[in-house]
Design a binder for these strands. Sequence first.
DNA 1: TTCATATATCGAACTATATCGATATGCTAT
DNA 2: ATAGCATATCGATATAGTTCGATATATGAA
Lengths: 104, 104
Amino acid sequence: MNTETIINALSNPIRLKIIVWLKDRSNFPPALPEHANEEGVCIGYIQEKAGLSQSTISSYMSKLKQAGLVDSERHGQWTFYRRNEAAIQAFMDAIATELLANKK
Amino acid sequence: MNTETIINALSNPIRLKIIVWLKDRSNFPPALPEHANEEGVCIGYIQEKAGLSQSTISSYMSKLKQAGLVDSERHGQWTFYRRNEAAIQAFMDAIATELLANKK
DNA sequence: TTCATATATCGAACTATATCGATATGCTAT
DNA sequence: ATAGCATATCGATATAGTTCGATATATGAA
């Protein structure tokens, strides 16, 4: 994904927080027993933590996904979101190369 | 300066480009002889390169300055802008710590 | 099939950002 | 003083982003 799209996705404070929260599963309530072996966090928990409406968080998550920062997987009625670590790392490398004077 | 303000300043593609352009003085026309020992680039050159109106670039530069990404110095009727390398580096460190899973 | 739950999409209202031209300020030279 | 530049600020308009509630879709259970 391109740098500009990603910066845009991260330029909203709640979306940025979501990416940070997702670093650590313990930022959210424990998964239900039947989801014990799913990776990621269901969107309901993210919504609850963010304190915004369900529709807002749904569209935020799809924006983060479009930017490549998260992946999602649907299991039954739940959608689980998790960070795309490789994409995040690649973005950090790209932005560092672009911005820092001593690089490139 | 805080991370959120900086991300916002960088979330405009022209502002981001300006910061990148300022890495290398040769992205701009040579300084006038009487400005030979000024650091930075006068805003007129930045405007010319960006191709936006003078007022737009002026406010972009003041936004970048407020975010701490550039410093400015006025000499006579000219204002010279240059990158604040320390601030840019500090921002990169902060955002890497915040975003990357293996940090902090 | 019908109901409840989780998530997604739609439409609207409000706020913020981008961007311009016009005007103001400040400096330099005449 | 005044005229001419470089830059800054102001006011306006258009576009984009935020955020919500309402509605749609998909799934699982009764």
